Amino acid sequence: MHANVLRYFVEVARCGSIRKAAQNLYVASSAVNRQILKLESEMGTELFDRLPSGIRLNAAGERVLQHIRGTLNDFHLMRSELDELKGERKGHVSVVAMDSLFVDFLPATVEEFSDAYPAVTYSIAAVPPHDVPMRVLSGEYDVGITYITKLPAGLDVVTEVPLPPGVVMASSHPLAKKERITFDECRHHAFLRLEGRSPIQGVTSNDFPAFWESLAPSVTCNSTTLLKRLIASGRGISFFSKLAFLDELSRGDVMWRPIDDENVNELTVGIIIPNQRALPHVTGEFVERMVRRLKHVELTLREF
């Protein structure tokens, strides 16, 4: 009922970038740009200000966005009411994942899925990577996303991609010139640490726990969002997968370098589900969307 141009317009307005919107929509940037230009031609006015850093809605664009959001909201409400009448396309999706997936991956997946399944509700929790498997195995959540190490019996890996943690720093940082970075080199620079156990604890050498405990981080917190900002502003380095820095890597604000440890570099990020119980239909559909998006992200991040 609604042309692609409406979805494209809303996503470009949200992202402030045609490239980023195209990535979230799984289409070529040229296709998104054509639709935006077509809409501006039909409206008889430009809807975005083109800036060196991206694009931004102008006054006319804000008015169009207001109308489109109202239209799409009415459409989703109508779809929900029809689904209620038919008893279809409803259900609840429960996901537990490591914190870095809450920056971009999970929000984009839920937004996309909600367009097709507006009556679905969600429970989504962020926990340390090593806690994810047991949360799924216990039945507290149906789906998990985490680093794949040795999993307990009762869990299956739906898909996994090579997105290991590495050292993230501002592009101007001295370590950005190196191809690989050792744990000892990290010791000599301001370190920004997520609170709790390291995500690579248990998969590195026996010396790693002592190294981790010996660090005197300049900042310790439980917020990836806060650490991302401090890293980009040059306040220190940290350990993260590229997943948490999609935008910053594409803009060149930060650099990611592998850790000089083969065990770490072999780590994958995967989607896990229980093999002892059947997932609800709507959860299975959500898992398929996550698989597609995770593989797309892997391809996008290969160049960084």
Results as ranks from 00 to 15, higher is better:
63 R>M: 11
63 R>A: 13
64 V>A: 04
64 V>G: 02
64 V>E: 01
65 L>P: 08
67 H>K: 15
67 H>E: 03
68 I>E: 11
68 I>S: 01
68 I>C: 03
68 I>R: 05
72 L>Y: 03
72 L>K: 00
74 D>Q: 14
74 D>P: 00
74 D>S: 13
75 F>L: 14
76 H>T: 02
76 H>C: 03
77 L>Y: 05
77 L>T: 13
77 L>V: 10
80 S>P: 00
81 E>D: 02
81 E>I: 04
84 E>K: 13
84 E>L: 12
84 E>R: 09
85 L>S: 11
85 L>K: 12
86 K>N: 15
86 K>L: 15
87 G>Q: 10
88 E>H: 10
90 K>N: 11
91 G>A: 15
92 H>M: 12
92 H>T: 14
94 S>C: 07
95 V>K: 05
95 V>C: 07
96 V>R: 13
96 V>H: 09
96 V>C: 14
98 M>Q: 14
99 D>V: 15
101 L>V: 11
101 L>H: 12
102 F>A: 03
106 L>D: 02
106 L>S: 09
106 L>Q: 05
107 P>I: 04
108 A>Y: 01
109 T>K: 03
109 T>D: 09
109 T>V: 11
110 V>I: 13
110 V>W: 00
110 V>H: 12
110 V>G: 01
111 E>R: 15
112 E>K: 11
114 S>F: 06
114 S>K: 14
115 D>A: 05
115 D>I: 03
115 D>C: 10
117 Y>N: 13
117 Y>E: 07
117 Y>M: 09
117 Y>D: 00
118 P>V: 07
118 P>H: 14
120 V>S: 04
120 V>P: 09
121 T>A: 07
122 Y>A: 08
125 A>C: 01
126 A>E: 07
127 V>N: 01
128 P>H: 12
128 P>M: 09
129 P>V: 09
129 P>I: 06
129 P>H: 03
129 P>T: 09
129 P>S: 08
130 H>N: 05
132 V>D: 10
132 V>N: 06
133 P>W: 03
133 P>Q: 04
134 M>W: 08
134 M>S: 02
134 M>N: 08
135 R>K: 15
136 V>P: 03
136 V>D: 01
137 L>R: 01
137 L>E: 09
137 L>D: 05
138 S>G: 02
139 G>Q: 11
139 G>S: 07
139 G>Y: 12
140 E>Q: 05
140 E>T: 06
141 Y>W: 07
143 V>Q: 06
143 V>S: 01
144 G>A: 01
144 G>D: 09
145 I>Q: 00
146 T>E: 08
146 T>Y: 00
146 T>N: 06
147 Y>V: 10
147 Y>P: 09
149 T>A: 10
149 T>I: 13
151 L>N: 05
151 L>S: 01
152 P>G: 06
152 P>A: 07
154 G>P: 02
156 D>S: 07
157 V>N: 11
157 V>D: 00
158 V>N: 03
158 V>L: 02
159 T>I: 11
160 E>P: 06
161 V>M: 05
161 V>D: 04
162 P>V: 11
163 L>P: 04
164 P>I: 04
164 P>G: 08
167 V>Y: 03
167 V>Q: 07
168 V>N: 04
168 V>D: 06
169 M>A: 11
169 M>W: 03
169 M>G: 06
169 M>T: 08
169 M>N: 09
169 M>H: 09
170 A>W: 11
171 S>T: 11
171 S>A: 15
